Amino acid sequence: MVASDISTGLSGRPRVLGRTLASIGVGILVGALYDYAIAVAASAPVPGGFTTPPLTLALIAIVAALAVATAWRWPVVGLTAGIVVLGLVAFAVGGRIGWTPYGYDWWSPFNAVAFGAASGYPTIVGATMITSAALSLRRTHQPVGE
């Protein structure tokens, strides 16, 4: 018998499609989680005599760094998550969802989505996730020699 490296061309497709669909599903969950996490980090009642306390800025930076790392390491998940974050912000703006003031009900997911639309932090994180994922995809799919 002669061994061959030639594949039928169909053997890897179901596996790749399944992994891609799983990555998109995970991306939807990750996007919702990051939208909630960035809004909670930005609205947490942190004491301080500043307009935006340094601890709040540090929490926002940590969540943003994790979001970028996720988008860079798993680009399909990051791209989907970034789109979900921007979609949630657009939904909150379009629906004119209201949020309670600083320090009240800051753990509530509905308040987090509304606060995210008003603050802009999730928009920045979502756009950064999309950009990071796109750069990672471009880097990994470059033809040899470029």
Rank of each mutant, 00 (worst) to 15 (best):
F110C: 09
R138I: 01
E146Q: 14
A81L: 02
L33D: 02
G18P: 06
I130E: 04
G18I: 01
R96A: 11
G25H: 02
M1I: 11
S132I: 02
W106K: 07
G116F: 03
F110M: 13
L86V: 06
A37M: 11
G48C: 08
W106C: 04
L135Y: 04
L88M: 15
L88R: 11
A22L: 15
A118I: 04
T51S: 12
V93T: 12
S11C: 11
A32I: 14
G116T: 02
W74M: 12
G25W: 05
S119L: 06
A81N: 01
P101L: 08
V89H: 02
I97L: 14
L29E: 07
I124S: 10
P109I: 07
G18A: 15
L79E: 00
A65H: 03
T100H: 12
T128Y: 01
S132G: 06
T51Y: 14
A118Q: 12
F115L: 07
A64F: 14
T140V: 07
P101W: 02
S43V: 03
V68W: 09
S132N: 00
I28R: 00
L57S: 12
V89N: 01
G103C: 08
W107V: 13
L55T: 15
Y104L: 14
T56D: 04
A92V: 08
R139H: 00
S4V: 08
V30M: 11
V89I: 08
P109E: 07
T20H: 06
Y102W: 10
L57D: 10
D5W: 12
A117W: 02
S119G: 11
S23A: 15
G116V: 00
I124V: 15
A58I: 11
L57C: 02
V77M: 03
V77L: 07
L17P: 01
S132L: 01
G18F: 12
P143M: 08
L57V: 12
I28M: 08
G116E: 05
R19K: 14
V16H: 12
T80P: 04
G98H: 13
G120L: 05
M1K: 11
A114K: 05
G49H: 14
P47G: 08
G87A: 00
L88F: 08
T131V: 14
R15V: 14
R138H: 02
T128N: 07
A3S: 13
V77I: 15
